Simulated scan of single mutants.
Amino acid sequence: MNHIENKVVIITGASSGIGEATAYKLAEAGAKLVLGARREEKLKAIADSINGKGGAAVYRVTDVVNPSDSKALVQLALDSFGKVDAIFLNAGLMPNSPFAALETDNWNAMVDVNIKGVLNGIAAVLPTFIAQKSGHVLATSSVAGLKAYPGAGVYCGTKWAVKAIMESLRMESAQAGTNIRTATIYPAAVQSELVDHITDSATSGSYRKLYDTYEIPAERVASVVAFALNQPDDTNISEFTIGPTTQPW
């Protein structure tokens, strides 16, 4: 049974990688998409492609660091489609480096996007989900949210935070009887633009080699998102770890 058809799903970080692949996957299943990211040209191209094939997609330039942007994205969903069923908090940064490199600007950027961006999305959608006593919050963490890696301490910290935030949200929602489900996804080497933003040269080289060796298409994660969204209302699958069969992550 298709539980995705006609669901209104918001996706952040929707202009590339996992977010883009998920938009296409859910559109094929009949979902109505609300896409947010910082690059308007890419968002427009994705929305145009979905709409051109008979789907339904709208977009808004969104910086998840700004709470007002997340609120506006939720409002766009309500204005365009009359409801919100799910939000996929997928925007993220991974400019890794050793602590000794003191790339403090990158530390702060990761905290702002990877943690505060998730919290801003939750804050924006929660009043609607609580009022309707249903909703699904999905978020992209990382295998770095399950274990620690040298050279990735801050990134790991932000992704561990996502794990804790999402699990607490699930438990609180169950206790309150608001029926809000959560799904946290922990990808290993999956095709994305994450590696492109690593400025530390030694770290960049090692990650590029890792991803070139192992990475699997972003569509693999999109399929997991679709699987989570396709569960009946009484069933919550809260965590998914996904990566290449050949990668010893």
Rank of each mutant, 00 (worst) to 15 (best):
K7I: 07
I10E: 08
G13L: 08
G17H: 01
G17R: 02
K25I: 12
A29T: 09
A31Q: 10
K32Q: 15
V34R: 11
L35V: 01
G36T: 06
K42T: 14
L43S: 01
K44P: 09
A45E: 15
D48G: 06
S49D: 15
K53Q: 15
G55I: 10
A56Y: 12
Y59Q: 07
V65N: 13
K71N: 14
L73R: 03
V74E: 08
F81V: 12
F81R: 15
G82E: 07
D85G: 08
L89R: 03
N90Y: 04
S97M: 06
L102D: 15
V113L: 04
N114H: 00
N114A: 02
G121R: 03
P127F: 06
P127Q: 04
T128K: 14
F129D: 03
F129N: 02
A131C: 14
Q132F: 06
K133N: 11
V137F: 10
V137H: 08
L138S: 06
V143P: 09
L146M: 05
A148E: 09
Y149M: 13
T158F: 00
V162R: 00
V162N: 02
L169A: 01
A174S: 12
Q175E: 13
Q175W: 15
R181V: 06
I185Q: 02
Y186E: 02
A188F: 08
E193S: 11
L194S: 00
S201G: 10
A202G: 14
S204W: 09
Y211I: 06
S223L: 08
A226D: 03
A228D: 01
L229S: 03
Q231A: 08
E239I: 04
G243C: 14
G243Q: 07
P244I: 12
T246L: 13
